[in-house]
């Protein structure tokens, strides 16, 4: 039984992992783009972006999942996501990417705005372009400052992936819960917690390592 459960949970965890990795891959760069929008001097860009961030951060991710999954079918009369597991996964991914990008954008904004003005001015008087200044001088200092809050969000993401079950995305808790109905046992559900603990433990180590790597400057 233990082996059956383990294999089954592993399969569910693979779904969790796929959602987790792809969410990070897309939401981190998108978050940077959104943060530039939210810092724009042009209110036509800044205000809508800030409004979207407010809505996304101000409503539950579970609600966003439902709206994004069912919304196109209801409002456009056309199920954008296609049928089957792939469609549900795509919808879940879009919801997660959008949600996390907004949170990341605020972390990026805080990090970028915390860099002293003198760094930008020193780059300017040395004749660097704005993009040279950002990528060669500002970015790494921002990264160093935002590693702790980003690691918080990333570890939250590991656990948030379980919300995708509301649109029937098969992740690990879904798999664990099946055994209650099929075999009348509840321990597989607790067993899923071990997966989460081990994975977030590994992430904690990884972020600790990154922090240490960036310790060479202050």
């Amino acid at each position: 039984m233990f082996t059956t459960v383990t294999l089954s949970l592993l399969e569910g965890f693979l779904g969790t992992l796929k959602l987790f990795v792809l969410t990070l891959v897309f939401s981190l760069p998108l978050g940077l783009v959104i943060s530039f929008g939210s810092m724009s001097k042009n209110p036509v860009l800044r205000l809508p972006v800030r409004f979207i961030i407010w809505v996304v951060r101000g409503t539950p991710l579970m609600l966003q999942l439902l709206v994004i999954f069912y919304g196109p079918g209801i409002f456009l009369g056309n199920n954008l996501w296609g049928s089957g597991a792939t469609g549900r996964f795509t919808a879940a991914l879009v919801a997660f990417v959008f949600n996390y990008a907004c949170y990341f954008s605020e972390i990026f904004r805080g990090g970028i705005q915390s860099i002293p003005k003198g760094q930008h001015e020193a780059a300017a008087v040395l004749g660097l372009t704005k993009s040279q200044a950002f990528f060669k001088i500002i970015l790494l200092q921002v990264v160093k400052r935002i590693v702790p809050p980003i690691s918080n969000e990333v570890i939250t993401l590991v656990k948030d992936t379980s919300l995708a079950r509301v649109i029937a995305f098969y992740e690990i808790i879904w798999e664990g819960e099946r055994f209650i109905k099929s075999s009348g046992i509840i321990w597989p559900l607790f067993y899923t917690g071990v997966f989460y603990l081990v994975f977030s433990g590994l992430l904690t180590l990884l972020f600790g390592f990154i922090e240490k790597k960036l310790d060479f400057f202050k």
Partner: peptide, 18 residues
């Protein structure tokens, strides 16, 4: 290009820490 005629040393140094 115009800026490069001048060099600037700041009160707070503003060295790039990394």
């Amino acid at each position: 290009e115009k800026r490069l005629h001048f060099g600037m040393v700041f009160q707070q140094f503003n060295l790039f820490p990394q």
